[in-house]
Design a protein around this nucleic acid. Structure first.
Lengths: 226, 226
DNA sequence: GAGGCTCTGTGATAATTATCACTTACTGCC
DNA sequence: GGCAGTAAGTGATAATTATCACAGAGCCTC
């Protein structure tokens, strides 16, 4: 069963207006003042619950997110339901896929899921394009986003192409631990299997192996990294 | 031995000045006239022999190529010499990695090899950046390049993460056949193994299997796709 | 036509990963 | 406490991929 994500499709909470002080404190230095003003007018603040699916393959994308806090994981899905983790989006990150899709009016080719409670600003597609010409800081931001995601994808390919599953598993656990800022985190073997494009049994076994080596401690829905 | 590529490092031939008529015929509609003029002044025309290595991991990149004809394959290498094909660059394509590196003065993280005799224009790094602000057609070109390479990488991940080696092999052969425009092409099992991040023996066996199925015909340095 | 080089074929075997079919464990809820 | 539902553990077995160790084939050169 790879549809575990789908049933956690909890609603988005806390829409609110963006005031300029808030934006200024967050984006000062990154975006110019006029851009911040426009962002305040047309951007939408959102809080996304953990597990919420922000984007699915085939869906049209009408906005680009800028993550303020929390994290979003981006997965690639193939036709028969298998998945692979591409990368995480964290603070001040944005999504290259949504940029591409917005700028070209294309459908999403990835899945985006909130890994934890996440706060973000959503920018409507028309502005994404308009601002590229209008604000040099936005143009820089868009370039930087492409570059970061490109690097992330190269990293994903390194893992998938060159590393064995046990190594990939360990580095995924380390990333998750880093992300939540503590050594113990909530995750099922099934979910990990999805991110590493393999099956649950395989992950269960590898985890048991790691536990025997004293690298992790396992319990239901939870993994502690030693 | 994965260094087969290195020994084919034949020199670049035929530097020449670019005249405006030539550029116009190639880029008409894509680039505006003033950009074409500048391109003629600072761009360098090159013909690259098959097998020439244009770029290696760790090298600084001082120019961005625009491919006029032929094709370049882009490989990712890991620390212990293994390689994986990322994508091909063909007509009017450019390389996102070199853009990223140029714009950030970073070192290359990929290998680029001419798959066949290739003609290209090389644009110096300073201009790449300058033109993004100066010419909207260049900005569009850079965006489009990022987007295309991003898609290519997603495609590479699909193959590596979700497909079995025999399928990947077959689709690689099909791509090569398409590239050279004919059903028979020159390649060694070793080279294919490098592109698919596996070993020569594995490829030899899979090819034999395909031959038994009547999908290919094998001979030394050559594969014919049925 | 005899070496020498690279490329290819292949047996034997191991390591890794995948699948099937269960069992067992944990949690929440009535 | 009993039941339902999800998560995790595990044996058996298969499929896939990797490695090692050669043998033979094709081709170039002297």
């Amino acid at each position: 069963m790879r549809t575990a994500l789908l049933i956690k499709n909890t609603p988005i909470a806390n829409f609110m207006q963006l005031d300029i002080e808030f934006l200024h404190s967050r984006f000062n230095g990154l975006f110019e003042l006029n851009l911040l003003k426009e962002l305040g007018q047309v951007g939408t603040y959102m809080e996304i619950e953990e597990g919420h699916v922000l984007m699915r393959p085939g869906a049209y994308i009408r906005s680009v997110p800028i993550i303020l806090s929390g994290s979003i994981k981006i997965l690639r899905s193939d036709t028969d339901g298998r998945e692979a983790l591409l990368y995480y989006l964290g603070g001040m990150d944005s999504c290259a896929m949504s940029l591409t899709c917005c700028l070209n009016r294309r459908k999403s080719e990835i899945t985006a899921v909130a890994e934890e409670k996440t706060k973000l600003i959503s920018v409507p597609v028309e502005k994404v394009e308009e601002w590229v010409s209008k604000y040099s800081s936005w143009k820089q931001f868009v370039f930087a986003t492409y570059q970061k995601r490109f690097d992330d994808l190269l990293g994903a390919i390194d893992q998938i192409a060159f590393r064995k599953l046990d190594e990939r598993l360990l580095s995924l656990l380390q990333r998750k631990s880093k992300q939540c800022g503590c050594s113990v985190f909530t995750v099922t073997h099934e979910e990990i299997a999805g991110e590493l494009a393999t099956s649950r049994e395989v992950i269960s076994r590898l985890l048991k192996q790691l536990e025997k080596l004293g690298r992790v401690k396992l319990s239901r829905n939870k993994i502690e990294l030693m």
